[in-house]
């Protein structure tokens, strides 16, 4: 998926440079990082460039870690990260003299998905953790059929993988027999083919899909179960939610500042909703 998603949104400018206005051609704003955010980033870039044809923005994926490493090394203008920076990354940034500043640009919930034929429709956050850790291995232990659970995870370079590991698995390892999908679309595809499957994806990918079933999740057994939605993610009722971030080296300035300004404005936030995430 990473390879597939390493698509650069080429800034096809029909007017910009061809015009007689003169002046140096605009520098391209580089945005790189989270695979989860690539679709969102591309949608922003398209809208932004259609509103301001003289601007060029390129979006690439690779994973949040790739983006953060790029901001530390100074090879990108903006890093997209679907998680916060880790201690180790902050230290590395300090060592290299970089000063990454976070801006929250959207909210995202992680949806827990199963095969549509699976009778289980709700789990607690803890149960989800135990399943992915390999402590619960049969669907009958969570109210389903007597069938071994097939675990589908993202690869370790994915921000979603990290987020699940930290917040739901509480930093334990994924079960040894977890299958790994090289991208979100591949994972959804695999889960839709396996009756015993459980997997996790950003909610945007489950929008308008009938080939997988989204589970309701509760913080604990005696609390209410919620589907991931705009209200439940922003209110914090849905337990597996996170912010989607931009990192810039220092406070955003110049082109980056204009782009972020657009994103946080009405137009940019509309794109957030259209893509299936939740506005700030």
């Amino acid at each position: 998926m990473k390879l597939i998603l390493a698509i650069v949104v080429a800034a096809v400018l029909l007017f910009g440079c061809a015009g007689q206005q003169g002046g140096a051609p605009e520098k391209q704003l580089k945005v790189t990082g989270s695979d989860t955010m690539v679709i969102l980033g591309q949608a922003w870039a398209e809208k932004y460039m259609s509103l301001y044809p003289q601007k060029k923005v390129s979006i690439t994926g690779g994973g949040s870690g790739v983006g953060i490493a790029a901001i530390i090394d100074g090879t990108t203008d903006i890093a997209q990260a679907s998680r916060d920076m880790k201690e180790s990354e902050i230290e590395k940034a300090k060592a290299k003299g970089a000063n990454p500043v976070k801006t929250i640009v959207a909210y995202d919930g992680i949806a827990i998905i199963v095969h549509p034929d699976n009778p289980v429709s709700e789990l607690t956050s803890e149960q989800v953790g135990k399943i992915f850790k390999g402590e619960i291995t049969n669907w009958k232990d969570v109210g389903g059929p007597d069938e071994k659970i097939g675990i589908y995870s993202r690869e370790s370079s994915s921000g979603t993988y990290e987020f699940m590991k930290e917040h739901v698995l509480k930093n334990a390892d994924y079960a040894k027999d977890s299958k790994y999908s090289a991208g979100t679309a591949l994972l959804v595809q695999s889960v839709s083919q396996d009756k015993t499957a459980i997997g996790y994806v950003g909610v945007a990918y489950t929008k308008d899909r009938s080939d997988v079933k989204i589970l309701k999740i509760a913080k604990a057994v005696d609390e209410t179960y919620f589907l991931p939605s705009k209200e439940t993610v922003k209110s914090g009722d849905y337990p597996i939610a996170r912010s989607l971030n931009f990192y810039t080296n220092g406070e955003p300035a110049g082109d980056a500042k204009e782009f972020i300004g657009f994103i946080l404005g009405e137009e940019g936030q509309k794109v957030v909703e259209e893509t299936g995430y939740f506005r700030v």
């Binding site: 990473k2 390879l3 994973g63 949040s64 690869e155 370790s156 090289a182």
Partner: peptide, 12 residues
């Protein structure tokens, strides 16, 4: 091969 391809991207 797939291990290298999918893990090299983010490794420090």
């Amino acid at each position: 091969t797939s291990t290298i391809a999918s893990e090299m991207g983010e490794v420090a």
